[in-house]
Design a protein around this nucleic acid. Structure first.
Lengths: 204, 204
DNA sequence: CCCTATTATGAGCATTTGCTCAGCTCTTCG
DNA sequence: CGAAGAGCTGAGCAAATGCTCATAATAGGG
């Protein structure tokens, strides 16, 4: 890492529409670049290039690289993007149907957002607010899934809370792996086996 | 990142005890440095310094920085993971017993150094060479586990290969999560539920 | 003790990356 | 129109980092 200055200097605040657009393009590009290359390899020059903006312009609006990530996080909070992303649409039916819906949901929503979020979290610069918000939302989602399970007549497990947590994470992690490394096994195969495993588990 | 050469050149293989020790010191130092500073900030010079070895020596045994992490990961995987595959084989019992052994194995193997583990996982998304190395070792392990499963009379699944892969990754990933981000649930609870899920899945 | 293969050294090269700055273009408004 | 300020540009600096290579030190069989 090159010059890491204090650089707490105030940056230009957009006064024309043009500038606002530039800022947005930079942020959008940054989101893409970070998700694609990771934080360290997501260089400011690369971001500027992707935004079709000169590095000079970039640094006119952000005092340093970290500030870009920070702004990205703020926007995430403001927009509540992940709220929608993880919304679950579980219709009642066979247990297998329900589980399959859960798996499909994970596959659908696990494309872009989670990776960026992971980068943000790993980078450690996460605000306390983001952390708690994420935690709260995660809990809410767990509760939703657990409710669906608890209402289903075929579900027979010792510890529903533990089971729900295990299942949600297992589905999520396997999906992540599939999306990240689309190796050997096909999406369909994995989906089927995942559904089988979870369904049999829940059935007792 | 400075010069990123192809660097597929063969490196010196230790022929004297002295060299073996040097290699070990480098790896040990690398583990510490990566743990302390993270991968990006864990510079090769810093590693060499901590190992009380010159960078020249470091590069005599490792073609590049990634290779050091790769070796660390290989050692991590190798350690214990299938020394016990034999035990599993020699002491066949209930399917549940076998599965529990598998889970315990993963837990034991990961209990040691959460921070390093996280780095390995996170960095795993980058280097192609690293990935193939891991893939090879992973494949070996998969084959062994699949063998154990295939020999057990109670195992009834459509696609043993797919099932094995799903199981191994699920066990591993859940263990990672538990160790790296310890949350509400206790180790014991998760172990039990994991065992239940996998056992029921395999039983068909 | 000597000779050769092996191992160790570290200054420095090549490259990368975060970031600056002098000067340019565009917008706005009297 | 035209001036002033807002916005934009990109060559390039300084620091950092991965890695090489010429050279020196050491080991161990003969």
């Amino acid at each position: 890492m090159p010059p890491r200055k204090p650089s707490v200097d105030p940056r230009r605040k957009p006064r024309q529409v043009r500038a606002e657009l530039t800022r947005d393009r930079i942020l959008t590009a940054a989101a893409h670049v970070f998700t694609e290359h990771g934080y360290a390899a997501g260089t400011t020059n690369r971001i500027a290039e992707r935004a079709h903006v000169s590095i000079g312009s970039l640094y006119q609006y952000f005092p340093n690289k970290d500030a870009i990530l920070a702004e990205l996080m703020v926007r995430h909070i403001d927009r509540g993007a992940w709220h929608r992303a993880d919304e679950l649409d579980l219709a009642p039916g066979t247990l297998e149907t329900v589980v399959r819906a859960l798996v499909r949901d994970a596959v659908d929503n696990h494309q872009e957002d989670p990776r960026l979020l992971r980068i943000m979290i790993e980078q450690g610069q996460v605000s306390e607010e983001l952390r708690t918000t994420l935690a709260r939302h995660g809990a809410r989602r767990l509760a939703e899934v657990r409710d669906v399970f608890s209402r289903h007549p075929d579900v027979r497990v010792r510890d529903l809370d533990a089971a729900t947590e295990l299942i949600v994470f297992t589905v999520e992690l396997n999906t992540h792996r599939l999306v990240a490394f689309p190796q050997g096994l096909s999406m369909k195969t994995v989906e089927n086996e995942l559904v089988d495993m979870v369904t049999r588990y829940l059935s007792g």
